[in-house]
Simulated assay, not measured.
Amino acid sequence: MKYEAYLFDLNGTIIDDMHFHARAWESILNKDLGANLTYDEVVLQMYGKNAELLERVFGKGHFTQEEMDRISLDKEKRYQDEFRPHLKLIDGLDMFLEKAYQAGIKMAIGSAAIPFNIDFVLDNLNLRKYFGAIVSADDVHKSKPDPETFTKAAEQLDIPFERCLVFEDAPKGIEAAQNATMDALCITTLHPEEDFKQYNNVVKFIADYRGLPLL
């Protein structure tokens, strides 16, 4: 096996939930806040921290930090309420995680999600034993495509960057891995392969984890 550590994004990579996030954001941005964005325009803004998304759409200073925190939490509660009946691992990931765990490959979560959402997934699906490090939106100064999320996860696992493989579903996440000098495996839950053609660090595209060997 080439890699000593696997660094997983969460949403769209461990669970197939990005359409639920998009619908929650579409509702808040348009119905509550009057942004008047199409669904596809909402999807394009879905990277980084929630506050960063709000600032990209409305401009810096439009909301106070307290207002952005309230909007962010409201969005996550709407997302969780709608997604909870569908909460499950992407097909094949249960077997892949167990194989990696038994093989001694270190694993971490590197996500722009807030702890409220990470805990929602890890605790409800009983995944904590697999991950030796968890890096959330609250743990970094700069979110993806800045490499800090993944470099911090690698440092916590004590694995050199070049020995890490990042699992991602979003172009900005793949870019963050590239900026960290890490290879990436791309799962096409939300974005098609052509959305990643500008990156040279993708070693494999998958639709799900069924039959995926350790790398």
Rank of each mutant, 00 (worst) to 15 (best):
84 R>M: 11
123 D>L: 02
109 I>Q: 02
81 D>F: 12
127 L>I: 13
87 L>Q: 05
118 I>A: 07
135 V>S: 09
75 K>Y: 13
119 D>H: 14
120 F>K: 03
108 A>S: 13
84 R>K: 14
127 L>P: 10
81 D>M: 04
131 F>A: 04
98 E>G: 01
89 L>A: 05
115 P>F: 00
115 P>D: 10
95 M>L: 12
98 E>Q: 14
78 R>S: 11
125 L>C: 05
118 I>L: 10
99 K>N: 15
104 G>N: 07
128 R>T: 10
93 L>V: 08
127 L>Q: 05
126 N>R: 13
80 Q>R: 15
75 K>N: 11
103 A>E: 13
90 I>T: 04
121 V>Y: 08
132 G>V: 02
97 L>R: 03
104 G>I: 05
98 E>R: 12
115 P>C: 00
126 N>G: 11
121 V>I: 13
108 A>C: 12
84 R>F: 12
92 G>C: 05
124 N>C: 00
93 L>D: 03
125 L>N: 13
131 F>Q: 06
116 F>P: 00
131 F>T: 00
88 K>N: 14
86 H>P: 05
74 D>H: 15
82 E>I: 04
117 N>G: 02
124 N>H: 15
117 N>Q: 10
94 D>L: 01
135 V>Y: 05
88 K>G: 09
86 H>A: 01
122 L>W: 03
106 K>M: 02
130 Y>A: 13
77 K>W: 09
112 A>Y: 04
84 R>L: 14
120 F>D: 06
133 A>S: 08
87 L>A: 07
74 D>P: 02
100 A>P: 08
126 N>F: 11
86 H>C: 08
93 L>I: 12
136 S>W: 10
97 L>C: 07
101 Y>E: 06
93 L>T: 05
94 D>W: 01
128 R>D: 06
113 A>W: 01
132 G>P: 03
79 Y>G: 08
101 Y>M: 03
113 A>K: 00
117 N>C: 11
119 D>F: 01
113 A>T: 06
95 M>H: 11
107 M>D: 03
134 I>C: 12
115 P>K: 09
85 P>L: 09
136 S>R: 00
100 A>M: 13
131 F>E: 04
96 F>W: 15
113 A>E: 12
92 G>I: 05
91 D>C: 02
115 P>S: 07
134 I>D: 06
132 G>A: 11
123 D>P: 07
106 K>S: 12
135 V>A: 06
104 G>M: 01
134 I>S: 03
79 Y>T: 04
101 Y>N: 08
131 F>D: 03
92 G>A: 04
113 A>L: 02
104 G>S: 06
136 S>D: 12
83 F>G: 03
97 L>Y: 06
120 F>W: 09
117 N>W: 01
74 D>M: 12
94 D>A: 14
92 G>F: 07
133 A>I: 08
134 I>T: 14
129 K>G: 05
80 Q>A: 14
108 A>L: 05
130 Y>V: 07
85 P>Q: 14
124 N>R: 15
78 R>N: 06
81 D>E: 14
98 E>K: 15
129 K>F: 00
132 G>N: 11
116 F>T: 13
114 I>G: 00
133 A>D: 09
102 Q>N: 11
114 I>L: 11
102 Q>K: 15
127 L>H: 12
87 L>F: 04
78 R>E: 11
132 G>T: 09
103 A>F: 01
